[in-house]
Design a protein around this nucleic acid. Structure first.
Lengths: 152, 152
DNA sequence: ATAGTTGGTTGGTGCTGCACAAATCATTAG
DNA sequence: CTAATGATTTGTGCAGCACCAACCAACTAT
């Protein structure tokens, strides 16, 4: 690899587009999510938790790239709604292993279902297969670039 | 395809992933952009302007889904740096037609160039062709779902 | 045992992005 | 002339989030 001295095509930047679309999505998502007593960041956290059960709070803080103290608050809110559970780690009883509860998984699924319309609107220019492709690319990017995710 | 009465697979939701990745990108982008005296939202605005020269401020406000009064502030900042230009519309002299200046296009290009590393990091799990695919999907979604963009 | 370190928690402070409201000016339309 | 419209200015308030300091419980090392 790295053999070709190809200087580099203009290689399009996706940052601004990502920002823009995320914003549009979030604006609509907020009102849709409100009846579920969830805000966008809750959704993000729950989504992460669905993929990595029993993650430690530190790892979560790294994954979400949020300050540890704010993670606490976020989890408090979710725990108050019984959507997540904090279990003590048997190996190191200081650690909390955070996991989605059944209610949490259910709420997440319901919320996602309710977001179908939003996504349809924001990603309206994409057909189903394109949306699926987008999802898998986003997923791969999100999982792969996760510092706290050594082995998947 | 589209012939099967498949009720619907779980159809993955991309909202949270979009949110998550945009955040990761934005966090890094902020520091990279600082030397250019640009913040992420400036980048978004400039990116939009590159695609639609001579757009009216109202249209911009619709596209960015930002309040009109905040658009004014944003444009003031960009105009102070001579990155955009406000021209009076000849047809309706109340309107401002906003356009990228040469300096603006240049700054935008430079900033994007500087963001290469950031994108490489955040989208590190994707290879070049995947990144390209992602970009074109995002672009299509952004252009297509734009209410103020009747004909492109 | 004792000291130092680490995971988590609490409380507080402050900045930034943004929505929203109100008042103003220039221009256009009826 | 009057009303409506595009843009501007100024001011208010809230939410997200980073950061700091103090603290407890539990682990580690000596």
């Amino acid at each position: 690899m790295t053999s070709q001295p190809v200087v580099s095509q203009p290689v399009h930047r996706s940052g601004a587009l990502l920002d823009h679309l995320a914003r549009r999505m979030r604006l609509r998502a907020e009102s849709v999510l409100a009846p579920f007593r969830l805000r966008p960041r809750h959704l993000v956290a729950l989504t992460v938790l669905r993929g990595r059960d029993g993650i430690t709070q530190q790892a979560l803080s790294i994954t979400l790239e949020m300050d540890g103290t704010n993670i606490v608050g976020l989890l408090n809110e979710l725990e108050a709604e019984d959507l997540i559970e904090r279990r003590r780690s048997p190996e190191d009883r200081r650690r909390h292993l955070v996991a989605l509860t059944e209610a949490g998984a259910k709420r997440l699924a319901e919320a996602e279902c309710a977001l179908a319309a939003v996504e349809k609107e924001v990603l309206g220019a994409l057909d189903d297969s394109q949306r699926e492709a987008l999802h898998s690319l986003l997923l791969q990017a999100a999982m792969g670039s996760d510092v706290s995710c050594p082995l998947d």
